[in-house]
Amino acid sequence: MKGEIKLMERFIDPCCDKCVNSKIKPCENFVECRLSGPICHENKECTGKRQAIIEKYNHSPGFFQH
């Protein structure tokens, strides 16, 4: 149901109903958005969802030092 998207388990999942990325209309900022977004709107909760995915996989201090 619209407005009830809670989880963002993978980067492909939308953070909320403002995410317009789809197969038919792909978002040109998809990659940056997943790393430091959202870009099309401002929402701390949506930012947090992306950071949660990043933090989950950040297994070592050197993980981002590439």
Partner: peptide, 25 residues
């Protein structure tokens, strides 16, 4: 070999976090 032995190769999200597909963009 920068990602070999560092990420789960079957998880695209881990690749994206390590700057994956930024070069394509």
């Amino acid at each position: 070999l920068r990602n070999c032995g560092v990420i789960d190769p079957e998880n695209i999200d881990e690749y994206i976090i390590r700057d994956g597909y930024s070069g394509l963009k």
